[in-house]
Design a protein around this nucleic acid. Structure first.
Lengths: 248, 248
DNA sequence: CGACTAGTTGAACGACGTCAACCGTTGTGG
DNA sequence: CCACAACGGTTGACGTCGTTCAACTAGTCG
């Protein structure tokens, strides 16, 4: 293996390459792969950062699933984003001092911390990389908007269908899905918090999706048996994910 | 009047100065004020940009109120953000080719278009300004998250209270509110689309807020009679707006 | 084997939606 | 200058989607 191949397997290089609209230069690859990264592990349900924190570092998800969430005063929880490997969920801490959300491990999680200073130095030296990271934060914004539409204007059946479509596509993009099946260890409570409904209702909708032969979600695994029907039910159009054209 | 004062009244200079964590240098002010801007007017309910557009320019709201929205296939509409003067609602078009949302004029609107090329040139010459605009897009992301919590986990009464609190604070920041009263020409239909409820229900909640003496919304004007009670009802905590410390 | 957690299901309730009628204001054209 | 259409707001009656409460099951861990 050459150094180049090694760098290409680095999570940052993979992620940035998948988002950038240009080919990364060799110095850019080196800068990304050379970022000093501190790897840490979290168990499911642990918080990585919490609201009001003032981090001096960002982190990338290396493996597992993370969730950004907020809570009301009386403890009701709303998941506002899920993060698959490669994502940098608290990137905004680079420019906004105090966090307005918390991020927790949904499953066992491996993450890599990178100091703000190191990132800033890299962006100074390689401005195009800054633009790519900017692009990633804008894509996250696009996901937020789609979630708002989904949670605000679709009933729970299509709403859940839409969420499963999104998660499957994103898992496919990072190579974690095979044949419309991917690891997804979400409890029904967590699903409820993402969809803005109750866990009891999640259970009923899940049952309906299962009985109609669209999906199964069990054993920490989501399998979509009828992609076409699920996408139709959820009115799923992946444009908002802003993927670069690959296959479908 | 000196050239400096003139520049300080320029919408971009005002906006950037209000968001930046540092003092703008004179060259930076000049660059902002010197951006070639094409002013245009839109009547209420006209679209400025629509989903799937591929703009080669951004625009700033100069006066009036704009709304970013998305629709489901059957035409149900969800407003995902409001934009007050100074905001640059489609900034993401600088980095994402195709729009995943539409933006319409809520009231009569005056906007200023700025070509992407001009912005890119400015960011190359003044990297700190790029960081400030990045910061603004991250703040918009914070608003999205708060909206998701609000729409997903609060019932319609506190939900509407929260929205009015947010809008009032934002109007105050740009100097359009006096004594908890500001122009706000939203119809009940539009309010419904922002809150994810029906217009009939908006009417009822509005009546309740009015009868409890918290607000009045009429004649294109929102007046908050009891800020404390409204903020309490909406569990409003302005942290997520990421304002720089001024008054309260 | 007991304790705990996640899932499942029924029944009653409630928040909100839908439908429909009606009112008030505005603006336009005969 | 009035008629009337168009639109936004208001209200009641009723339907429904989703919640809440509660009981029960199944799997897992010590």
């Amino acid at each position: 293996m050459t150094g180049t191949v090694e760098a290409d397997n680095h999570p940052f290089v993979r992620k940035v390459a998948s988002v950038a609209l240009f080919d990364l230069s060799e110095p850019e690859r080196k800068a990304l792969a050379g970022l000093p990264m501190h790897v840490a592990r979290y168990e499911a349900h642990q918080d990585v950062v919490v609201e009001h924190d003032r981090p001096n570092r960002c982190f990338a998800v290396l493996s597992g699933l993370a969730a950004t969430y907020k809570t009301t005063r009386d403890g009701r929880r709303q998941v506002v984003a899920y993060h698959v490997p490669g994502d940098v969920p608290d990137f905004q801490s680079l420019h906004l001092e105090v966090l307005d959300f918390s991020i927790s491990a949904v499953t066992d999680l491996r993450i890599g911390f990178v100091a703000h200073d190191a990132l800033r130095a890299m962006f100074d030296a390689h401005p195009r990389l800054g633009d790519v990271f900017w692009r990633t934060t804008l894509i996250e914004g696009a996901l937020s908007r789609e979630w708002m539409l989904n949670n605000g204007r679709r009933e729970s059946y299509p709403r859940m269908a839409h969420l499963f479509c999104e998660l499957m596509v994103r898992m496919e993009v990072v190579g974690l899905a095979t044949g419309h099946s991917c690891p997804l260890a979400l409890t029904q409570y967590e699903l409820a918090d993402a969809l803005g409904i109750s866990s009891v209702h999640v259970n009923r909708i899940l049952k309906e999706l299962r009985e109609r032969g669209l999906i199964t979600l069990s054993g920490g695994r989501l399998t979509i048996h009828d992609w076409t029907a699920l996408a139709r039910a959820g009115e799923f159009d992946p444009t908002y994910l802003h993927l670069k054209e690959t296959d479908s």
